[in-house]
């Protein structure tokens, strides 16, 4: 398993560029590449959002899979992270970059 030691070492190399989880469809399966929270990804300060996402299990290298989506705007989404299932909105999921 290739777990990047530094979250910043992401762009430019590798066959597939990381994409935000918030843009992906139901059924997507992949791995967390890194977390990139900024001021557009919700009401929380970026540093706090990053901690919350990590607490939910979105650590680099974690296997993720979008299991379900809501009816309106396909939001929120239910994501399987390693063994657990968590629910979150697409806006916060934009901070999770996956490949």
């Amino acid at each position: 398993m290739n777990t990047p030691a530094h979250p910043d070492r992401h762009a430019g190399h590798g066959s597939e560029a990381p994409r935000p989880l918030g843009n992906l469809d139901r059924g997507f399966t992949g791995h967390v590449h890194h977390i990139s929270a900024n001021h557009d990804t919700g009401a929380l300060p970026p540093e706090e959002l990053e901690r919350r996402l990590i607490e939910l299990g979105f650590v680099e290298g974690a296997r993720v899979r979008i299991l379900h989506e809501g009816l309106f705007g396909r939001d929120p989404i239910a994501v399987q992270v390693n063994g657990a299932t968590v629910a979150l909105r697409r806006r916060e999921a934009m901070a999770i970059l996956v490949s």
Partner: peptide, 11 residues
Amino acid sequence: HTPSPPFMLDL
């Protein structure tokens, strides 16, 4: 003026 807070929870 307050942005809506996140929704995150375990299922």
